[in-house]
Simulated assay, not measured.
Amino acid sequence: MDLSRSRTTRRSSTKCTDYYEPDCDRGVRFNDPDLGIEWGITPEAAILSEKDSRAPLLTDIQNPFAWGTTKLSCL
């Protein structure tokens, strides 16, 4: 099946509960094998922003949350 011609739509959403804080902005590499998401394209065919192309693997991300609080430790 040629997925480049597929009419399947993939959507994602995020929930924001406060104002945008650039120092707390995070991302994860879209093709991280630990996530196991079949996007239907090769990494070479993906069109990514500069920021997304530099995103780390999930295992390489430090947890930004402080234990026992609702405030991010980066704030």
Rank of each mutant, 00 (worst) to 15 (best):
C16S: 15
T17G: 10
T17D: 03
Y19N: 09
Y19W: 13
Y19P: 08
Y19M: 05
Y20E: 09
Y20S: 10
Y20H: 12
Y20F: 08
Y20P: 11
E21S: 09
E21C: 12
P22K: 04
P22S: 04
P22L: 03
D23S: 08
D23N: 05
C24K: 07
C24R: 02
D25H: 13
D25E: 05
D25F: 05
R26L: 05
R26F: 00
G27N: 04
G27H: 12
G27D: 02
G27E: 01
G27K: 02
G27I: 03
V28H: 02
V28T: 07
R29H: 12
R29V: 01
R29G: 00
F30H: 03
N31G: 06
N31P: 08
D32V: 01
P33W: 07
P33A: 03
P33T: 06
D34V: 02
D34Y: 03
L35I: 02
L35T: 08
L35E: 05
G36S: 10
G36R: 07
G36P: 06
G36Q: 10
I37D: 13
I37M: 14
I37C: 15
I37H: 14
I37L: 12
E38V: 11
E38T: 13
E38Q: 10
G40V: 08
G40I: 05
G40R: 05
G40A: 11
I41P: 05
I41D: 04
I41S: 09
T42P: 10
P43F: 00
P43A: 02
P43K: 00
P43C: 03
P43T: 03
E44T: 07
E44C: 11
A45R: 04
A45D: 01
A45G: 00
A46C: 11
A46D: 10
A46S: 11
I47A: 08
I47S: 13
I47F: 11
I47Y: 12
I47V: 12
I47N: 11
L48F: 11
L48W: 13
L48P: 13
S49V: 06
S49L: 07
E50M: 15
E50P: 14
K51I: 01
K51D: 00
D52S: 11
D52L: 08
D52V: 15
D52F: 12
S53D: 13
R54Y: 15
R54D: 15
A55H: 12
A55R: 12
A55E: 05
P56Y: 03
P56F: 02
P56Q: 00
P56N: 05
L57Q: 06
L57M: 05
L57N: 07
L57W: 09
L58V: 02
L58C: 12
L58G: 12
T59K: 09
T59P: 09
D60F: 04
D60H: 09
I61V: 09
I61M: 08
Q62P: 09
Q62K: 09
N63D: 00
N63A: 00
N63V: 00
N63Y: 02
N63C: 01
F65V: 06
A66W: 08
W67R: 07
W67C: 10
W67P: 09
G68R: 15
